[in-house]
Design a protein around this nucleic acid. Structure first.
Lengths: 188, 188
DNA sequence: GCAAAACGGCACCGACCGGTACCGTTTTCG
DNA sequence: CGAAAACGGTACCGGTCGGTGCCGTTTTGC
């Protein structure tokens, strides 16, 4: 557990929010499990919503860094993304995508939490496009959106099936798309 | 608005749950907007959870009937599923899939609401397999799971992009899969 | 070493949560 | 027509929600 109160709050809140949902976890729980005093929380985060945003922003940075690192380690190709996902799905504390979950839970699209979550997804799409550009596909922007759809589909399916199988399923589809792109444009 | 208290409760609860989330909507709201008395609610549904389950079961039946009807009207082929989805995504009250949302919101996989939601998805997969079998693909069970992944991916993406575009994106992928199946097995 | 900042503990706030009990009225149906 | 069931309204319950204010203690940094 981190030393500073702020860091302990972020770590505890992230864990609880992800495991049980944002609405389901009260301030009381976060205070109890982090050992931080009530006043200290509100000194760092004026409201629960500010805490939520801070948690999501930190998770966004960490998650994308993790993905880039794993993709690199797994060969660097676009479909390595799904091998990385398979690792995530296998973890027994896997509970889907924190950002999808946030957009589902906080329905208002104009809410700050919802927007942070939507921003995360766009950054992931941008990363996928960069990956596909490096792989020299003919239409990286189109394919990036299709890959993103596969990623989210795999995550949601894994949440429901509770096995890593959806990752390999999505990977198979992704490679079919890459093959079709290669056949159509003559590269690969 | 339906006449009987029970039906009004189900209609009001379904609308509010879908629009704002299950946890976000209190019993008070449902009573106020349905015009039903407090005692009447608890006469029909012993707890909020029972109400949630009843709402989801009704929605499951209605949703699958709607899908089958639209697919039939749109040609009856497997990829008509995505044309049906596009209609759904275009509605301005679209807020994703009520069952995915339920599984996200009620984290506990053993909870009744979560199980009803999971059951719904399996019934959809079964329907897809039936559709693909009729279309004489070589591996209907494998393809059904892939189609289901595309469906959920499209729904989640539509929730985030707030346009019907993900439906046509998923449709394109689906047809690539059908084409690959036809090429590999020599049917189509 | 000392001032200032960061901290944990506690009491308290109004509002709302899901749920119970009892009331008198309306509707249904034999 | 009359009994029984279904109903809407209200007061109330304990518990929890997010948030504020004040206290004395610990830690930090000059």
């Amino acid at each position: 557990m981190p030393v500073k109160a702020r860091d302990r709050l972020l770590a505890t809140a992230e864990e609880l929010f992800y495991a049980e949902g944002i609405r389901a976890v009260g301030i009381e729980r976060i205070l109890a499990e982090s050992g931080v005093g009530r006043a200290s929380l509100y000194r760092h985060f004026p409201s629960k919503d500010d805490l939520v945003v801070a948690v999501l922003e930190a998770r966004d940075r960490r998650w994308r860094a993790w993905l880039a690192e794993r993709v690199e380690a797994l060969g660097g190709g676009p479909s390595a993304v799904f091998d990385a996902l398979a690792e995530r799905f296998a973890r027994n504390d896997f509970r889907g995508c924190a950002f999808i979950n946030t957009m589902v839970e906080s329905a208002d699209p104009d809410g700050s939490a919802h927007r942070v979550a939507a921003d995360h997804k766009e950054r992931v799409v941008a990363y996928l496009e960069q990956l596909l550009t490096a792989a020299r596909v003919s239409e990286p922007d189109l394919l990036a959106r299709e890959f993103a759809l596969l990623v989210d589909g795999a995550i949601v399916t894994a949440l429901r099936e509770r096995t890593p199988a959806p990752a390999v399923r999505a990977r198979r589809i992704a490679q079919a798309l890459l093959a079709a792109d290669g056949a159509g444009a003559g590269n690969g």
